[in-house]
Design a protein around this nucleic acid. Sequence first.
RNA 1: GGAGAGGUGGCAGAGCGGUUGAAUGCGGCGGUCUUGAAAACCGCUUUACCCGCAAGGGUAACGGGGGUUCGAAUCCCUCCCUCUCCGCCA
Length: 425
Amino acid sequence: MLETAYLRNHPDEARKRLAKRNIDAEGLLAHAAELDGQRRTAQQALDNELAAMNDQARAVGELMKAGKREEAEAAKARSAALKETITGLKEALATAEKALDEHLWTIPNTPQERVPSGKTPEDNVTVMQQGNIPELPAGAKPHWDLGAEYGLFSLEDGVKLTGAGFPVYHGQGAKLQRALIAFFLDRAIAAGYAEVMPPLMVNADSAFATGQLPDKEGQMYHATADDLYLIPTAEVPITNLFRDTIVEAAQLPIKRVGHTPCFRREAGSYGKDVRGLNRVHQFDKVEIVRIEAPADSNAALDEMVDHVKGLLDALELPYRQLLLCGGDMGFTSAITYDMEVYAAAQGRWLEVSSISNFETYQSNRLKLRYRGTDKKPHLAHTLNGSALALARIVAALLENNQTPGGIRIPKALEPYTGFAMIVKK
RNA sequence: GGAGAGGUGGCAGAGCGGUUGAAUGCGGCGGUCUUGAAAACCGCUUUACCCGCAAGGGUAACGGGGGUUCGAAUCCCUCCCUCUCCGCCA
């Protein structure tokens, strides 16, 4: 959530940045300012009464010690008299705080200056494109056909076991999953990210701190018996590792990488978007997470983008980099680049990575601070990005590399798969 | 799942219901001393919010929430967590 101090001290900047979202920035911020004012008024009133009560309570003790019974009783009475007002003021403050918080939760992060305004994916800006769009042989097939033909994965098996959107990988398809995961992890580790293997379920506090709750409750699988959520991305557990912490500036940047399966309900998705591996309820992903001092976070973002480009280059996939417009960005992000790969048989670009700088939006909820040179705690910046998401990478790999003699594995992956071609059994 | 013990500051560990945000020790920071270091000695050492240009002042927090009381780290209720033992088990 946004910081009230920021909104108070830089109202014009906040309004200007938020306007890119294609929402009623003016109205949202005006209401926030109003609620913030009410909260502060309530707090002042309460604090004054509490101070008065503390004075009296202290006096009771001193008078008793001095043996002045009657005066002590009088002080007791004065203190007790304040009680009712205090109870009322406490409730007033709690109400004001709740109203402010709940309103702040509805305000998305403020996009950076360079983020284009816009409403829909149409308004996203293609920053760069790289790699050759492959010429496919006659009779080339989309990955879901290839998956069946080569026995690499089965959605039907998943339906039997679980339901739609839970692929079962077999044989070389399963090995390819492991190979990609290991490859991505190794590359991230080589780039200085420390590996984490977190739990796949988190509590509500964690889901709240990274912003999945309360906004996207319906997107997560919820194990109600224990009130735990299946993670939609490793971002949630990994970032929450740093909830309620103050790190020294010297410890920054903090760089973590983790592989986890990701679980998404994807309620409301339909059509060609969900064919094959394009959109599934469970997929594997390697996620990189960084915690940075504010001055360094944008450079870190560029570094993360370069890292992902390196992976896509190594996989020999044609890809492009998109700068998302204000209307298409995630709720909690200040700037997001999407990386898309071209799946030649479908003739579509598939999003395989989303790399974002959240600035202080997450850390404010996380209470993640760093101690600056002024020795005082400040909110840190958090960033994360997929590096990379598996299912769609597999889709593109299969489609683009199909040949009459089988499906070719990129050179960089061979040491991990142990085979250079996927062949029919 | 059953029985018992316990949750206090970065760590360890005190804390008759009344100047206790909290003794003491360790650690950390600054200083004295020293050619330098160590030792010794002295001082400092949580966070959030509010008022204030600042100096400074106020409020809150001893696992979470609620209650008793003029006053709660200290008493009561409840939830969570940790440890020990038993059971079950990858």
